[in-house]
Design a binder for these strands. Structure first.
Lengths: 180, 180
DNA sequence: CCCGGACGTTCCAACTGTGACATGTCGAAA
DNA sequence: TTTCGACATGTCACAGTTGGAACGTCCGGG
């Protein structure tokens, strides 16, 4: 039913939660794990933010407590209103890219510290890319992929991460040469 | 002198401003233009945020009013304390990557809308990459590059943007094939 | 002369995000 | 049996971010 009308900016944590609950019901604790692991390359969230958002989503009727477990565990499930909101966001809302790349920002100002320091920093970025790339490759091997939706689209995201890391590594190597 | 001790997170707008003022003195209005144009691929800032930060930086003694012009224009220049802070941040502070990619988040959940919608979305991402890539190439041609630091490092950042956009385009084309 | 658009700054309310703190339960191993 | 680590949630203050409204000035073209 009634969808929130405004949602000018932000709000994506909300949809990340809805998307994960669309897979299957989970507790806040479970969700937090997902954000720390699989989602860590895509969207960051802290514990306080997450539990806060769960409260808001429940109040908005987009998720509901589906089961309770030991230690006060509350498993949330997505409601029909939540599914509607998720689909709406997926296809109808224009993504707003907020560019904020701290590493690149530093590169912009690297002139202030002299070429040897600059070179160090660029090499560091390249090394970071290399490590990240390796880590993702390991991750890919460690997962046994199925042919369900979660696997298919999860693989796309993972591949994006690999290509991104490789790009960063190659760019950094090129950049070091430019500085010399 | 005395540098702020804590600065756990965020704070990068401060350094972006310091970095731009390191080039040469500018007013808030000039800075805003830079954020809208050259910096738009690296760091976003709104007008309110920017003027607020200028006030804080002045209070902290890292910038000072260097000249005043018509219409209440205030040109700010970086101080020695500000230069020290900038150099400190550039080489000594570990960058904290906050991953938050809304487009990729959507890809993660694309299973919820069926393959034809998913395909549309991925094609849209590819198209975005292509456009962005073209726009950056035009930008590169339109600038007459020197061999000063700002040109050298500005080119590195621009090249990063081009490679990123190309990567996104190629990935999206590959991704469309995977979904089929 | 007047008018619109660019120039230029200031303030604000609301929201989002962060790290820390507080609180408590359960299960397994020592 | 005690104790420790994992499980599990809630709340706080503070800083950063957003979008907008408000205000006034300069300058060139009609």
């Amino acid at each position: 039913m009634s969808r929130v009308e405004c949602q000018t900016g932000g709000m994506s944590l909300r949809h990340a939660v809805l998307g994960l609950l669309e897979e299957h019901p989970m507790s806040g604790y479970d969700l937090l794990k997902r954000f720390e692991q699989a989602m860590s390359n895509v969207w960051a969230a802290t514990q306080s933010q997450l539990y806060g958002e769960l409260g808001k989503l429940e109040a908005a009727g987009q998720i509901r407590v589906h089961a309770e477990g030991p230690r006060g565990r509350k498993e949330y499930a997505i409601t029909e209103a939540g599914q509607a909101e998720l689909r709406h966001w997926l296809v109808e809302v224009e993504p707003n890219r907020v560019t904020r790349n701290e590493s690149l920002l530093r590169v912009y100002f690297l002139g202030a510290v002299g070429p040897e320091r600059a070179r160090e920093y660029l090499e560091h970025l390249g090394e970071t890319g290399r490590r990240r790339s390796g880590r993702l490759a390991d991750l890919e091997d460690s997962i046994d992929w199925g042919d369900d939706d979660a696997s298919v689209y999860g693989r796309l995201v993972l591949e994006w991460g690999k290509r991104f890391s490789e790009m960063q590594r190659e760019w950094a190597e090129w950049a070091v040469k430019q500085v010399e």
